[in-house]
Amino acid sequence: MMALELEVAGEMLMLLPQKAMYWPSNSTLIIADIHFGKAATFRRLGVPVPHGTTAQNLELLDELMMLYPTQHIIFLGDFLHAPDISAATLQSLLNWRTSHPALEMTLVRGNHDVRAGDPPQELGIHIVNEPFRSGPFAFCHYPDVESDGYVLAGHVHPSFRLSGRHETLRLPCFLIGTGRAILPSFGAFTGSYTIKPDADEQVFIVAGDSVIKAV
C-alpha cells in the first residue's frame, strides 16, 4: 500500500490508505471514529448488518503497527459507539489489549464517548478532553475547536465525490487545511459525509491501496 507523506505544521505526517494517519517522529498512529460496537448495536435494533467488524478493526490496527513502528495510538473520539457494548466486543478488546501491554493509548472524548461512557479501565486508555496538545498539534474530535495548535480531528467521516461522464463515485478522504485536518473514519461500519472543500483546503482521496490528491 502506498502512503502519502505531507508536511503539516512543520512535521511530516503520513496519510495511510487504511484511513489512518501516522506521525513518524513520535511513532504515533492517529485514528478517528472507530466506533467499536456499532454493528452490534444495529443488529440489536433489528438491522441486518455484517458481523465481524470488531475483529476487522483490530486486525487492521495490528497490520498498521507491523508496518509502522508504533508506541502510541491517539483515538480522535468515538471509540465506543453506544453504552451497551456487548460482552463479546468487550472481550475482544481486552484480548487485543493484553497482546499489546506496552502500547500507550489516548482517547480524546467525542460525542459518542459522552453517551457511551469511558472505556473500561482494564483497557488502559488515557482519556482526555479536547484539545489534547502534543508537539504542534491539537488532537480533537470536533474540527472547529479553537486552539493555538494545528487541529487534527474526526467526527465528520469525510468523503469526496468523483464524477465522470456517466457515473459518480464517493470515496473516503482526508481534508487538509491551513489550520486543521479532518481524518476519514477508521471503523469498518461507520458511513460517511460528502464534503465540499473550502478554497484553502486540499482533498486527499483513499483510492484502494493508495492515497491521492484530488484534482
Rank of each mutant, 00 (worst) to 15 (best):
S86E: 10
S159G: 04
L76I: 01
L45E: 03
I125T: 12
P119W: 10
P172S: 10
S25A: 14
L61A: 12
V108R: 03
L123V: 10
H166D: 13
P69W: 11
V215P: 00
P48L: 07
M66Y: 00
F75W: 07
D33I: 02
A188T: 03
A39F: 00
Q202H: 01
R180A: 14
N26E: 15
I182K: 02
Q91M: 02
T28P: 04
Y142I: 05
Q202E: 07
E130Q: 15
E201S: 06
E63H: 03
E130N: 10
W23V: 09
Y68R: 08
F132E: 13
A116I: 14
S27V: 03
E63N: 07
A116L: 09
T190S: 14
A39W: 00
I85K: 05
P24A: 04
D144V: 06
R115P: 02
L13V: 15
C173M: 11
G46R: 12
M2K: 15
P17Q: 13
P143T: 08
R161G: 01
L103F: 13
H112G: 09
S25R: 15
L90H: 12
F42H: 12
G164Y: 11
L107H: 11
Y193L: 04
Y193P: 02
R165S: 11
A9W: 05
A181S: 15
T178M: 01
F186D: 14
H81V: 09
V8R: 09
F75N: 04
A32R: 00
N26D: 13
G208A: 07
S99P: 06
